[in-house]
Amino acid sequence: MTLALQQDGTATRKAKRSNLSSARLRAAWLFLAPMMIALAAVAGWPLLRTIWLGFTDANLTDLSQSQFIGFENYLSYYDGEAYGVLVDAEWWNAVWNTLWFSVISVGFETLFGLLIALILNAEFKGRGLVRAAVLIPWAIPTIVSAKMWGWMLHDQFGVINEILLSVGILSEPIAWTADPSTAMWAVIMVDVWKTTPFMALLTLAALQMLPGDIYEAARVDGINPIRVFFKVTLPLIRPAIIVAVIFRSLDALRVFDLIYVLTSSSTSTMSMSVYARQQLVDFQEVGYGSAAATLLFIVIALLTTITVVAGGLKSGEGEQS
């Protein structure tokens, strides 16, 4: 991946353009300033505040009464028993659920997204309409689509059971969101349905930016289209796909509304965000909940760094510009 992580060591013709470079450098900081100010002002403060609250015993009942308690929210001992997020089985259950959910759903989304992007990239009649149709799931507000699917998956009035029963796939209705063995799959299915368009659109944009002459050459040479796809197309669109995957994973790891609406706080589907929100809001434990949120942040940061570094190193090998 061509992210800025790897410094481009070959700063060529340095001396000749040193003047120009410094002008460009100044321009760079000027260009970056609005974004950095906006981020620092609006996002930075709430982030830091949450991290700080994680070290206090703040409670929603009276926020002004909070005291610094160090790492007690993370781990503490009381009467010989361990307390804190780090020893809470529910937290680890939530971590596991979230990872499982993210890997599976982002995996499917990438695959389907690529497939749909390839379809949309081909010339055929009604392409515009199909393109719009494919985007519909992404366009419906999450809150609404979660409710809609909850209704469609209902064991008694759900249209899904109705269809599967009438086709003969099921012999009796399944309580998709209630049964612990199907609940997570129901959530994953809805997420895939909802966010595949996001992947498809980003992949499509990358496909559209590929130079047409490569394909022309490949076609003239009579190379198998599948070979062309794996040898030419995929490597070229990989940076875009990796960015899409990173952002989808970030969203998936923070998944909240979908699970909250579909299965609420059932332990079989509880994600890290749902856990944090339960502590922060439902249980009023601002301090403890903030500690959980901070841990969530750390988990995501670690995973992202790994993805970026791994993705960046690999594509760096084949890079040639």
């Binding site: 209902h154 064991d155 008694q156 009035f157 209705p173 309580a175 969101t177 209630a178 049964d179 299965t263």
Partner: peptide, 21 residues
């Protein structure tokens, strides 16, 4: 009770009952 009752709230129960089921 249907096993789906494990995900029922008020309206789900009412839906089943009021549909005559």
């Amino acid at each position: 009770a249907p096993s789906g009752v494990l995900s029922y709230q008020e309206e789900d129960a009412r839906g089943v009952f009021q549909s005559g089921n």
